[in-house]
Simulated assay, not measured.
Amino acid sequence: MEFDPWDPQFVAHPYDVYAELRRRRPVSLFEPTGQWLVARHADVNALLRDRRLGRSYLHVATHAEFGRPDDPGFQDPFWRVIRAGMLDVEPPVHTRLRRLVSKAFTPRMVEALRPRVARIAGELVDAFVERGGGDLIAEVAEPLPVTVIAEMLGVPEEDHRLLRPWSADICGMYELNPSAEVQRAAVRAAEEFSAYLVGLARARRADPGDDLVSALALVADEGDRLTEEELVGTCVLLLNAGHEATVNVTGNGWWSLFRNPAELERLRADHGLLPTAIEELMRWDTPLQMFERWVLEDVTVRGVDIPRGAEVALLFGSANRDPEVFADPDRLDVGRADNPHISFGAGIHFCLGAPLARIELAESFGALLRRAPKLELVIEPSWKPGYVIRGLTALEARV
């Protein structure tokens, strides 16, 4: 089997292909997308930190200067929202946005959310147990981060149901060569979510509450504030990054444990292993398999020259199984102590929401381990077609 992000068999199990890439072609051109695949941990980690690459090139060149077509006009509402957040921009804009957002989204604020996260996770798991089980993703994994983020932003409870579809549709644009239908759904979701958040932000500016939208609307640093578009872009990023990753770590993680029953029993016998288990589940089957960067200046990686204007595809799933970094990398080890996985990225774009994700995962997995100690799989799950953001369609389990 070759690297083929559109092949369901590859999506279901890409790790043998990754091993071959690391051995024979750690840096290689993937003709169908024109991207340079980078497979080894050391290179992925270095390139994430290398300022000769960026999430965007628009701060140094036009599309034409990079040999790229202009964005189709119908995508304008999507990119206006996405490029107003910090993920798809570079310094100095990124530096300014991250500084302002970090003033509102503080470690103290995130830690203060722990009791609320524990309450939500406990309620979801209790309901799941009372039903005797069901779809672990739809009934526990998805509602938890949506509810946490919605409450954190100050979204009224009756509007929580809007967030998940918006997030899923927007993230569709990050897959490789998305279809016209997927692109239009992403644009529509960006427009709807943006309009909703503008209304919410204006209401909070006039009458602030104890929520993140209020904090972002009021945050200032030496007179500098977030614009309305930047506030919207930041909230969209928090929903998408925080939600999609947590859902898929939960689903992929439990599927990993079911496939490795000895490690599941080890975790059930010692809940103190939960912190290392969560890091290991993120490493062993990470939901974000690929993260892309544009080459802003010529670079050479393992003797391969990659020119300015090219795009590199950093294979997180491969880097996290690199035997040069991880002992026995294909073995799931819930007690793995030395675990420098890169599932949260590295460098200036390291995930700002990583502490919140770890709290959500700890409370979710912990509640299930305590309240459903005999949780078992009902039917082998299937994977969604997406490769870049990789997760299961459902995970049916009984208690």
Rank of each mutant, 00 (worst) to 15 (best):
L216M: 13
S214Q: 03
T234A: 00
R268H: 08
N177W: 08
L212K: 09
A19E: 01
T286L: 05
L136Y: 13
F350H: 15
D328Q: 06
T234H: 04
E279Y: 06
I379H: 15
A217N: 06
H271I: 12
F350Q: 13
P32Y: 11
R119V: 08
P92Y: 10
P143W: 07
L100K: 08
M173G: 00
G132S: 07
A112K: 15
L136C: 03
V140N: 01
E229V: 02
V129F: 09
I149V: 09
V182P: 06
G272K: 06
H13S: 13
V399L: 09
D4L: 00
R398G: 10
A64Y: 07
R358G: 02
L136D: 00
R25Q: 01
I170M: 06
L267D: 04
S56L: 02
L21C: 03
R370A: 13
F10E: 02
L136K: 02
D270P: 07
R80V: 04
F66T: 03
V125H: 09
R119M: 14
F66D: 06
M282N: 02
T147S: 12
L356A: 06
F193Y: 15
A185M: 14
S167W: 10
N248E: 05
A189I: 03
V11P: 02
V89A: 04
S214D: 08
V399Q: 03
A215N: 10
L100S: 09
V11E: 00
A220S: 15
P307I: 05
V213E: 04
L153V: 09
V101A: 02
E130T: 15
G209W: 00
E90I: 00
R52H: 06
P143M: 13
R131L: 09
D285H: 09
I170A: 01
P26F: 05
R114E: 12
L200H: 00
L176P: 08
R131V: 09
V304P: 02
P26H: 04
L53N: 08
D135C: 09
E265N: 14
Q289R: 03
T250H: 00
P355T: 10
E263P: 10
P385E: 01
V295Q: 10
I359D: 04
N177H: 14
S343G: 15
A367Q: 02
W36P: 01
A206S: 14
A203G: 14
I120V: 15
G34L: 10
E230Y: 02
L200Y: 01
P26R: 04
R119K: 14
E151W: 10
A64L: 12
L332G: 02
G391A: 07
D76H: 13
C171T: 15
P8C: 04
A217C: 05
